[in-house]
Simulated scan of single mutants.
Amino acid sequence: MLKKEVLFLIIQFVLFSFYFIDIEVISYSIPSWLNYILLSLVGCGFVIIFLGILNLNDDLSVIHAKKEKPMVFHGIYRYVRHPIYSGILLSMIAYALFTASIFKFILTLIMGVVFYYKSDNEENWMVEKYEQYRIYKKKTGRFLPKLRNKNY
Rank of each mutant, 00 (worst) to 15 (best):
M1N: 10
M1I: 13
K3S: 09
K3C: 08
K3G: 05
K4S: 07
K4Q: 14
L7R: 12
L7Q: 14
F8R: 04
L9H: 04
I10Y: 14
L15M: 03
F16C: 13
Y19K: 03
I21M: 11
V25G: 04
S27K: 13
I30C: 07
P31W: 00
S32K: 02
S32R: 02
S32V: 03
W33P: 05
W33V: 00
I37A: 09
L38R: 00
L39F: 15
S40T: 15
S40P: 12
L41N: 01
L41M: 10
V42H: 00
G43D: 00
C44H: 05
F46H: 02
I48Q: 08
I48D: 11
I49K: 00
I49Q: 04
F50L: 09
F50V: 02
F50Q: 04
F50A: 08
G52A: 07
L54P: 00
L54Q: 05
N57C: 06
N57Y: 09
D59G: 10
D59K: 11
D59Q: 14
L60D: 11
S61L: 08
S61P: 01
H64R: 03
A65K: 14
K66S: 08
K69W: 05
P70E: 13
P70I: 08
P70L: 12
P70W: 05
F73Q: 01
H74F: 11
Y77G: 06
Y79C: 06
H82G: 03
P83V: 06
I84D: 01
G87F: 00
G87L: 00
G87Q: 02
G87D: 00
I88C: 02
I88V: 14
I88N: 03
M92K: 02
A94C: 07
Y95C: 11
L97N: 00
L97Q: 00
F98T: 05
T99R: 10
I102V: 13
F105D: 04
I106T: 01
L107T: 04
M111D: 15
V114D: 01
V114N: 01
D120E: 14
E122N: 13
E123I: 10
N124W: 09
W125H: 06
M126W: 10
K129A: 05
K129L: 06
K129P: 06
E131V: 15
Q132E: 15
R134S: 15
I135E: 15
Y136S: 10
Y136H: 07
K139N: 12
T140L: 08
G141Y: 11
K146S: 06
K146T: 01
L147F: 15
R148T: 06
R148I: 09
R148A: 11
K150S: 11
N151Q: 12
Y152F: 12
